[in-house]
Nucleic acid binder design. Structure first.
Lengths: 231, 231
DNA sequence: ATTAAGCACTGATTCAAATCAGTTTTTTTT
DNA sequence: AAAAAAAACTGATTTGAATCAGTGCTTAAT
């Protein structure tokens, strides 16, 4: 793109969730009393698109994909590490329906917060509501970036983009073990598994990255950024 | 898609904006005192991606496209008829930057509301904030639908989708005069102008639609919906 | 009225990326 | 340790859609 910085296309940038800080002790207690903690194994669905959204989900541990269900293939909206809320867009007058599904990549822990309590707190505490708006808008920035990436970039750009994003926003290091298969990466980049493999081989051959099984290392950050930007 | 109804991919469904109803007389007055009304001609830019967002825009008359700027081509996020707010995602702690550009398709009237007043009202009036969250979430539904449409549907499906959406959500009739060129439709569907022309000819030949210059009439709504869904 | 400019349209060609049809490697299960 | 099942990988082929290279039709300007 250009100067306005759509660089975060797999997850939101700043995932220190500050909205709960705005709650009073009483309000925090209300949430704690009305929440349930659930453990999920790898590959399990934690919320289902179209289902009644009785709860907002807070991911305290793990890594999940948030996606739209589709006939030939799904569309991943974002991947979400721990510390993130899932299901905020379901806060809506009238029906509370999950707009998307979410499934775990790794073993995960989720807090289920009653959606009516959550809505009540928004209507009671304007500063909390303001922070929730902030979180929603962060997600909007992310989804716009991803939308642009998947519609306007070609394969090499998309792979570079996702790898940089994983390094910077999920693992916070240029050298990480990826708990995703090539097929998962294909789903994430909206391309075929074969294309992911071919493009990653190209990047490897050109000395941009190193790969050994699940381990991925970004060697040439500068060039990878260029490929991501103009790919 | 399937049962969860992503059918609104060009604009938001329910554009009777109810958030201002939650304001007190005093708060309404505060907005009125701090707003400016501006007229724009066809084709003019009303906000620029990356620029400082000093105002939230309320479109009182006209039709605009909201889009991300891109090197080879732009990506239209939605088209917005009168009665809609533009720039809400710019409400964010720290920098207030327009996340997108917007330009008029027709002569339009815009009210510029000071963003700091708007933010102040959110922090003061929780019910107003709650309604703003509703508006943001409506926009999220719309953008998800559009994201799915542009990435997972092929040409005939995308054109059918946009034509139905224009008929249902913008013009409220199956027979309308489109103030957009084929090139505009191409930008809107994320395809080339030639492809738009070819696909529309196909739809015409198959008796799905009738076209005479700028006038478009949807003949077979049922089949068009099917094409949109499985295209 | 005539020229110019832009838009609508058509057919041929090219291209990026998916699909298909395998083999090899790794992981999991027995 | 062996068998089975997933992944990872490779090359050939197909395909959907863009691009290219035009012609004809409008609308706007002279």
């Amino acid at each position: 793109m250009h100067n306005s910085g759509y660089t975060n296309t797999c997850t939101v940038y700043n995932n220190k969730l500050s909205c709960f800080e705005e709650l009073t002790g009483e309000q925090k207690e209300l949430i704690d009393k009305n929440k349930v903690i659930v453990e999920y194994n790898k590959g399990e669905i934690i919320c289902k698109q179209g289902a009644f959204a009785s709860h907002i989900l807070f991911l305290t541990k793990g890594l999940v994909k948030v996606y739209l269900e589709g006939k030939p293939k799904n569309l991943i909206l974002k991947i979400s590490p721990d510390g993130n809320l899932i299901g905020l867009p379901s806060i809506y007058d009238g029906n509370n329906i999950f707009l998307y599904s979410a499934a775990t990549y790794t073993h995960s822990t989720v807090e289920l917060i009653d959606i009516n309590i959550f809505k009540q707190l928004i209507r009671e505490n304007a500063r909390f509501a303001y922070k929730v708006i902030n979180v929603l808008n962060e997600n909007t920035v992310q989804i716009y970036g991803r939308f642009y990436c998947l519609t306007n970039k070609q394969l090499h750009g998309r792979v570079a983009d996702i790898l940089l994003c994983l390094a910077q926003r999920i693992f916070n290091t240029m050298d990480f073990d990826l708990p995703l298969s090539r097929g998962d990466l294909a789903e994430l980049t909206g391309m075929s598994t074969e294309s992911v493999i071919r493009v990653m081989k190209d990047l490897k051959d050109d000395g941009m990255i190193e790969t050994t099984g699940k381990s991925i290392k970004i060697i040439n950050y500068e060039m990878m950024s260029k490929i991501s930007e103009f790919g």
